[in-house]
Computed example of a mutant assay.
Amino acid sequence: MSIPGDQPNPYAQSQSNPYGDVPPQPPGGQQQPGQQDPRQAPNPYAYPPTPAGPQPGPVGAAAHPTMPGGVPTQPPGQVPGQAGHPMGQPQPPAPYPGQVPAGYGPGVPTPSAPSGSTKGRGLLWAAGGAVVASALWAGGLLATGGFGDDEAKADLAGYQYTGNLCGSTDYAPFEEAGFKKDESTSGDKNPRASGTEHEALDSMDCNTDLKASESSSSSDYSSTWVATSAHLHHKTDPEPEFEARYRAYENQKGSTYTYKVKPVPDLGDEAYLVTQEEKDGDDEGSYVILAVRDGWMTYQTSWSNYVSGSSNSTPPNSEKVGKMLSQSAKVTMERLQR
């Protein structure tokens, strides 16, 4: 029996949901973030959801990459990576799931290498080149002792350090030429030796005052000084700079003198004699240097002579002084090798 006034409800029968049963909604009737509404048909062309957090700003026209020549752009409604896409290759993975790589967006196709491109081979070549370069570098280090031994070993040629170079110095050539050690040096020790040992450079020095034997006058102030030094180089090879150091004297000129440099044979690995020449032609052997390098040992001895006006002695010339220094150096260097 129907109640007067009631009308049949044409919607009283539940109709079937074409999308299936709707699962119960969460409390509050609100859909969870990232959850698709099952009542809506899935969109096969939708882009992946954008993760939470700050996203790259809008892509401007200037940020769009330039497509390689001959590569067609994406037709409307077609997604790169799907079958039939003109680029034919799937997109590279995004930096993290759901993120579109920076500089691209909907409607802006991500460029991929066309078929037959050498881009991939270029990457392989670069990687292979890096491996080859690393191998060559490692081989060079092994060949030169770069692993754990990056310094060349010093070639000291058997020379030994001594704290008293004067005790090893040969004075016989000077004595034979009429010179003796000056005893009137106001109480100062003569000769005077000093030396220093160091892991990089050992230094040895000897300074000697000489006086002509025939000079007996108290008014004769003539003097001669012989300064000798020897160095053992432990860290640096002196060869590349040795000759240049003494050749530099050739460019030093005074108002009354110049310098002459010449090699000395049969003494060490290399040797040079530097002589001061007076412009007026006088040769009193006033200043002479002998420099010798033997391996990583360097040796220098210099002769400096002053002749007073009251002297009755004749000083040796530069040639004689050079011979005395060479003879003394040869014997002294032999003593340093013992």
Results as ranks from 00 to 15, higher is better:
Asn17Thr: 05
Ser219Met: 09
His85Leu: 03
Gln99Phe: 00
Gln35Cys: 01
Gly268His: 15
Ala230Gln: 03
Asn17Ala: 10
Gly57Lys: 14
Ala244Tyr: 10
Gln55Asp: 12
Val274Tyr: 07
Gly285Ile: 06
Ser255Thr: 09
Val131Glu: 01
His231Arg: 14
Arg335Ile: 06
Gly105Cys: 05
Lys181Asp: 09
Val261Pro: 02
Ala200Ser: 10
Leu210Val: 13
Thr228Ser: 01
Pro49Met: 01
Gly322Val: 01
Gly81Ser: 09
Lys180Met: 15
Glu250Asn: 13
Pro58Asp: 08
Gln15Met: 12
Ser2Thr: 14
Pro75His: 03
Asn17Val: 10
Asp209Phe: 12
Glu199Pro: 08
Gln32Thr: 11
Gly128Leu: 02
Tyr306Leu: 04
Gln300Glu: 15
Asp283Val: 05
Asp202Met: 10
Ser213Phe: 10
Glu175Met: 13
Thr275Met: 11
Pro75Ile: 06
Lys279Phe: 07
Arg245Phe: 14
Pro238Gln: 12
Thr224His: 04
Ser229Arg: 06
Pro315Met: 04
Thr332Met: 00
Ser194Leu: 00
Tyr96Ser: 00
Pro114Met: 07
Gly57Asp: 06
Ala62Leu: 08
Lys260Asp: 10
Pro4Leu: 08
Asn9Glu: 07
Tyr299Lys: 05
Leu273Lys: 02
Glu278Ala: 12
Leu336Pro: 00
Ser168Trp: 02
Val71Arg: 03
Tyr306Thr: 12
Glu250Met: 13
Leu156Asp: 06
Glu176Ser: 15
Asp182Arg: 14
Thr236Leu: 07
Pro191Glu: 00
Cys166Ser: 01
His234Thr: 11
Ser213Glu: 13
Thr332Gln: 00
Glu277Phe: 08
Gly98Cys: 02
Gln31Met: 04
Tyr221Lys: 13
Gly81Pro: 03
Thr275Cys: 09
Val292Arg: 15
